[in-house]
């Protein structure tokens, strides 16, 4: 395969992935508002377009027209850099998530992942950890005590939960014996989902994912009542929109990760049961992946409107005294499974 076909293929993949992701992100904002409304017996946005479906575009349009306010005492360069860094990190993580098996279209075979790298999972860990820089930069450069507090909280929180996240993933890697995302998905063929095999690891990973994405009940860096919005207090207009998008993109990525690592990725049990092959099977598998991700997105939103925020000390307690030991126990559990069943 020559270099140009790789470039073209990858470009198309990037184009598709970014657009799908952007659409998902805008509509997850819409559904965030709709679901919160339903949970509170309200109606939610219903004025812009049919059922309010054009609401995300109206929001973006509004944000575009808003004045971009930069605080006088901010570090202007870093202040401007932070939201782009956040966006960059959020989107680039998606490069290694497989949304389906290899696919043959018009006689041309390609894998349904932007970059099928061998160290996929390490790449994911590295990129998500970079996200903390965006938030810390934003908090520090704003020159506001609320923003700074938000940034510091975020750094502490991310580092704490990264630990249990990493150990949880260790359990997954022990089964798959590979860092490649596609291999991890394939190792969960049938009903051999990691979520079923190692429930403790699944729970610790999901909780850590919530913490990593700064979502309720771990949204301390933003904590509106205490920090007036946290690290993005001093952001407005499209820079604010950048953080906003990044948050939801992170949510989508966390969902995709959970699906890939624990819920069988694009594996569709129906395909095996009915022995479907060819393009139909591939489409069903992509569909399965999307359904799983959307279900997890719903779960993210659902949790936000059900649970109250943790106190900061409770968050740290939970991270170090509960999640960390649990993820260690998970490793022992997985090791025991491998020993006993010789998987």
């Amino acid at each position: 395969m020559d270099i140009w076909s790789i470039v073209i293929e990858t470009s198309i993949k990037i184009f598709v992935v970014v657009n799908v992701l952007l659409l998902t992100v805008s509509y997850s904002v819409y559904f965030e508002r709709k679901i919160s409304a339903w949970a509170q017996n309200r109606i939610g946005p219903n004025r812009v377009g049919w059922l309010g479906l054009l609401q995300p575009f109206a929001d973006v349009f509004k944000l575009l027209l808003k004045e971009d306010i930069v605080p006088d005492k901010s570090n202007k360069a870093i202040h401007a850099l932070a939201p782009f860094l956040a966006l960059f990190v959020a989107f680039s993580t998606y490069a290694v998530i497989p949304i389906g098996p290899e696919m043959t279209l018009f006689g041309y075979t390609f894998s349904l992942v932007v970059a099928d790298v061998g160290i996929g999972i390490l790449y994911v860990l590295a990129m998500t950890s970079l996200g903390v820089y965006a938030i810390t930069f934003a908090g520090w450069s704003s020159g506001s005590k609320y923003s700074l507090l938000g940034g510091i909280r975020s750094a502490a929180q991310m580092i704490s939960y990264e630990v249990s996240m990493g150990f949880s993933i260790a359990g997954v890697i022990m089964f798959s014996e590979s860092l490649n995302m596609n291999v991890i998905v394939q190792s969960q063929a049938g009903w051999m989902w990691n979520a079923i095999l190692q429930p403790i690891g699944f729970i610790t990973f999901v909780v850590a994912a919530f913490a990593e994405t700064n979502r309720m009940p771990f949204d301390l860096p933003e904590a509106e009542p205490e920090l007036v919005g946290g690290y993005h207090t001093e952001y407005s207009s499209m820079k604010f929109a950048g953080f906003f998008l990044a948050e939801y993109a992170n949510m989508a990525i966390a969902s995709a990760l959970i699906v890939t690592l624990y819920l069988g990725g694009w594996q569709n049990p129906l395909v095996d049961i009915f022995g479907i092959t060819g393009i139909t099977a591939t489409l069903m598998q992509i569909g399965a992946f999307l359904v799983k991700v959307l279900a997890l997105l719903f779960f993210f939103i659902w949790v936000r409107w059900s649970l109250p925020r943790f106190r900061y000390d409770q968050l740290m307690d939970l991270g170090w005294k509960v999640m960390f030991p649990l993820s260690l126990i998970n490793i022992v559990w997985v090791a025991a499974l491998i020993m006993i069943f010789n998987l």
Binding site: I35, A37, W38, A39, Q40, N41, R42, I43, I203, W302, V303, W305, S306, L307
Partner: peptide, 22 residues
């Protein structure tokens, strides 16, 4: 926590299917 979280989630889920008051 987990059972309590589950209870909370069920409560909001139940409310999603109640008629709106708006």
């Amino acid at each position: 926590y987990l059972p309590e979280i589950f209870n909370g989630l069920m409560l909001t889920l139940k409310n999603m299917f109640r008629p709106n008051v708006t």
